[in-house]
């Protein structure tokens, strides 16, 4: 068993196919406990798939996904639901339940999984909302919130049950600089204060590099490289260099694979 060896999540030789297309090909990733780990890569490189594999919403075609000492693909549907209580996910859109107000959204996991009295639920919800700075918004409905606030409420909901692993799916997409700054601070703060393992999936280079302790760069359905943000910046792997510097052409070509332009123009179909 790969129990407590300092890693909260371990992917061993994971391959994931969608139809005949392979999204992940024999990927090994180890995510250290209690740290913020960034998973970066260009759009469409299977980052979200990776997250869903860890959350066991997808089953790998082959390979093992160990979370807290359990191999997820081997668990039953029921055990999985138990397992997920230890994980929190912040989805791209926030995914608040649109028919519940902010308070009920945060209280939802508590109501489902605990038999706490109403006053205690109230106290916990207010504590979590205080942590994300939205205690004043308790009575609002999700459609009255801005995008950044939605994400913060969703974050409060994700930490309601004090999970051991917290995953962020593209937390910085479409946020204004202030909301972005707030989120960056929150992620770091929650990680250090609660001692949880954070996994940040993102392609926003600067923000992720500023909070992550360790970064995996994925692309081409493989792990291209990993290391601390500093060591990756100095990497001499051209693919990593292209991604870290954001140059438009390089090993990842500007052009989608096509026949020779000259031939196609002159060939006159």
């Amino acid at each position: 068993m790969s129990g407590d060896n300092g890693y909260a999540v371990e992917l061993k030789g994971v391959t994931f196919m969608r139809g005949t297309r392979s999204i992940m090909n024999n990927v090994d990733i180890r995510i250290p406990r209690g740290k913020v780990t960034g998973i970066m890569g260009p759009s469409g490189s299977g980052k979200t798939t990776l997250l869903r594999l860890i959350a066991a919403q997808l089953k790998p075609s082959s390979g093992e996904v160990w979370v807290n000492g359990y191999n997820l693909p081997c668990l039953s549907r029921h055990e999985l639901f138990d397992m997920r209580k230890q994980m929190g996910v912040l989805f791209q859109s926030g995914a608040l339940f649109t028919d519940l107000d902010v308070f009920e959204n945060v209280a939802f996991p508590l109501r489902v999984h605990t038999k706490l009295p109403e006053e205690m639920i109230r106290d916990i919800v207010l504590m979590k909302l205080q942590a994300v700075g939205l205690r004043g918004a308790v009575e609002l409905m999700p459609d009255e919130l801005s995008g950044g606030m939605k994400r913060r409420v969703a974050l409060a909901r994700a930490i309601a049950l004090d999970p051991q692993i917290l995953m962020y799916d593209e937390p910085f997409v479409g946020q204004d600089p202030i909301a972005m700054g707030v989120l960056v601070r929150l992620i770091r703060l929650l990680n250090d204060a609660l001692g949880i393992t954070s996994i940040v999936v993102s392609h926003d280079l600067a923000e992720t590099a500023s909070i992550a302790d360790y970064i995996y760069v994925v692309g081409d359905s493989q792990v291209l490289g990993h290391g601390t943000p500093q060591s990756l910046r100095e990497s001499d792997n051209p693919r990593i260099r292209q991604f870290m510097k954001g140059t438009p052409d390089g090993p990842v070509p500007f052009h989608y694979p096509a026949a020779d332009f000259r031939d196609e123009l002159l060939g006159g179909r």
Binding site: R52, A55, Q57, R77, F81, D82, R84, K85, M87, G88, V89, F91, Q92, S93, A95, L96, F97, T98, F108, P109, V112, H113, A154, R157, L161
Partner: peptide, 17 residues
């Protein structure tokens, strides 16, 4: 709509089927 706004996934992650 619940599916596209990831509400279903998020329910699953909260541990609710």
């Amino acid at each position: 709509n619940m599916k596209s706004t990831e509400q279903l996934s998020s329910l699953e992650m909260i541990g609710v089927d």
